[in-house]
């Protein structure tokens, strides 16, 4: 049993289709009204049918009131770290602290190259991401004196100005699957943001992958609980009979999510599907029920005693 004790977050993963820009923004508004915590968009700048993710994040944040927004996840090879940091901090300020930074090392190198980016091997990409995260945190750190100077293998800058300073501590969530990326996540990330369908054995992979992150955190002298575990679920559906993970009646969803929270330490549940009514049900039926179960289970010993007295 693993539980890092984070408060639970529920969100949607909306496909940023340019032809359906209105529906995309409307889905975020629906999620906001449904009381969900997160709305996120994938970031593939080389995909011509998609909207620019940074622009969409700022636009939807302006159109919503409470919900937090994040890229799921930003493609660092096409989002230079200082540019990304300033856009993130700016949106955090404007939205009153409703921004989280999802980030990844990049995939689809042909597309990246076509937009003017550089091709990196997977290993190089991990190092570059580590450097990028350092630079991002430097830019945000307006308490430090002097300009930002950085001389890395993949990025270097002299005399970059700091700021703006975010409205809150923006968490950095890393999209990671392979050992080196998981190690980076445990070493410097505030969160791990994979997609369950891409894990080699689905939820069964969680103990092993969590353990890698925990080990890297320990090695870096950090508490593993400093790394929130988030999860995207793409193939989800409400159906009358239980057919699989998040594909069944709402009671099954609730049990499955509570089990992932209490058994595997997953504390953020982000669903795809681009479906307004599913989004509403996720907020109205699933989130409160899961929260109730997890709260009850987390309460130390007390429930037992109550039962004993009854």
């Amino acid at each position: 049993m693993t539980d890092y004790g984070h408060d639970l977050l529920f969100g949607v993963f909306a496909t940023p289709v340019a032809q359906q820009a209105r529906q995309v923004v409307d889905l975020a508004v629906t999620a906001d009204r449904a009381g969900l915590d997160l709305v996120s968009f994938q970031d593939h700048p080389y995909q011509p049918s998609f909207l620019d993710t940074s622009t969409l994040l700022a636009f939807t944040a302006a159109r919503t009131e409470r919900i937090h927004v994040n890229a799921n996840v930003a493609s660092l090879p096409l989002r230079p770290p200082a540019v990304l940091a300033r856009a993130a901090a700016s949106l955090d300020i404007l939205s009153g602290g409703r921004f989280a930074l999802g980030i990844g090392a990049g995939a689809f190198w042909d597309g990246i190259a076509a937009m003017g980016g550089r091709r990196l091997s997977a290993a190089q990409g991990v190092t570059a991401l580590g450097e990028g995260i350092e630079i991002i945190r430097e830019i945000w750190d307006t308490d430090a004196t002097g300009a930002v100077n950085y001389d890395g293998r993949y990025y270097s800058v002299k005399g970059a100005r700091r700021g703006p300073r975010p409205a809150h501590d923006i968490p950095i969530w890393v999209g990671a699957y392979k050992p080196k990326m998981l190690a980076l996540t445990g070493g410097v990330g505030d969160g791990w943001l994979p997609t369950i369908e891409y894990l080699p054995r689905g939820a069964d992979s969680l103990p092993e992958l969590n353990a890698r992150i925990d080990a890297a955190a320990h090695d870096a002298g950090r508490d593993p609980a400093a790394v929130r575990r988030l999860m995207n679920f793409m193939n989800v559906q409400f159906s009358s009979a239980p057919r699989g993970l998040l594909n069944g009646p709402s009671e099954a969803w609730v049990d499955q999510i509570a089990e992932l929270a209490l058994g595997h330490g997953v504390s953020a549940f982000i669903i795809g599907g681009d479906d307004p009514s599913m989004t509403q049900r996720f907020g109205a039926e699933i989130a409160p029920a899961v929260r109730a179960i997890v709260e009850r289970e987390r309460r130390p010993a007390a429930p037992d005693r109550t039962q004993g007295e009854a």
Partner: peptide, 16 residues
Amino acid sequence: RTTGLDPWTAAVWLAG
């Protein structure tokens, strides 16, 4: 200076 917002992000926010 150090404190200005990213102009593009600010403009998008205003549009929204």
